[in-house]
Design a protein around this nucleic acid. Structure first.
Lengths: 146, 146
DNA sequence: CACAGATTCATACTTTCGGGTGATGCATTT
DNA sequence: AAATGCATCACCCGAAAGTATGAATCTGTG
């Protein structure tokens, strides 16, 4: 998260510098304020979307009813999750694996690196005592985790 | 999603109008460009974050391919098998894939070579229009093939 | 604050998967 | 007889998956 904020700051600083340079060297006051504002607005909208996704990535994939800290007493899953000691992230990865996504796609969807997904899935397989993703899906469905 | 985009446009237009009004009536050129850009940047960053959250929350609760939109429980194996033109062997391989076996294990179980299983699974994926075995399992279950 | 667990990422390596191509034999359909 | 579909197998190659190891950072709890 710190990295995200840092990158955001960098991007902001860079744009400010760029605008200032442009202002003094080329356009000065040739461009209308509307054009100017629009450029800045579009850029920071994109930046804001990106930053927003980064900052909230942890809470974007698990249905609200499955959130651990939520008071909803939704039956099986939390109990079995506790029994098999799957972390939130591992459970997320498990559901995406079951949905047929590749590790790369999962990584992109969760905004983390491929290596991270590999780590999660490996730990997942150990905890479920399986060797392959297809077995994990199979076993998870037997256990009612999915 | 359309509503979000619409609201985004409205907000953008409102801000542009506001800025123009301010520019001509009060500050004119009193404020430095840095301050000006910063205000716009902050505003649109917030707007971007908000829009980003709106646009992604709609489809992140459960992955699209996880949506079991009524698998139609009446018509099952034979008809769908015929529709998707899976051969006996391909269907056998499909069931074993769904059971979590590796190609090598399937080969041993069916007393054929690994290459044969690869061929079957490849043809299977083509017929089911999927790219991975996990997707094949997913799709086959949706279709009631398993 | 300190600690444990969780999350993230990297590097290096091995194994498995999957695509593409081609080939053979066998049974059927035309 | 020729064409077609199915099952079998092989070889090559690149992509994906998985293992092992180590490490930095974050987060929640006592």
């Amino acid at each position: 998260m710190k990295k995200t904020i840092f990158l955001y700051g960098i991007a902001l600083a860079v744009l400010l510098g760029l605008l200032k340079a442009i202002e003094y060297r080329f356009w000065v006051r040739d461009l209308s304020m509307e054009v100017y504002v629009t450029i800045v607005a579009l850029f920071f909208s994109a930046l804001g979307i990106w930053a927003g996704l980064r900052l909230t990535k942890a809470r974007t994939s698990i249905p609200a009813s499955l959130q651990f800290d939520s008071p909803t007493p939704f039956e099986v899953n939390p109990i079995l999750l506790e029994k098999y000691k799957l972390s939130k992230r591992e459970y997320e990865v498990l559901t995406l694996i079951a949905a047929g996504y590749s590790n790369q796609e999962i990584a992109e969807r969760l905004f983390v690196s491929l290596n991270t997904i590999k780590t999660h899935s490996s730990n997942l397989f150990i905890k479920l005592d399986v060797k392959r993703r297809t077995q994990a899906v199979q076993k998870a469905k037997e256990l009612g985790l999915l």
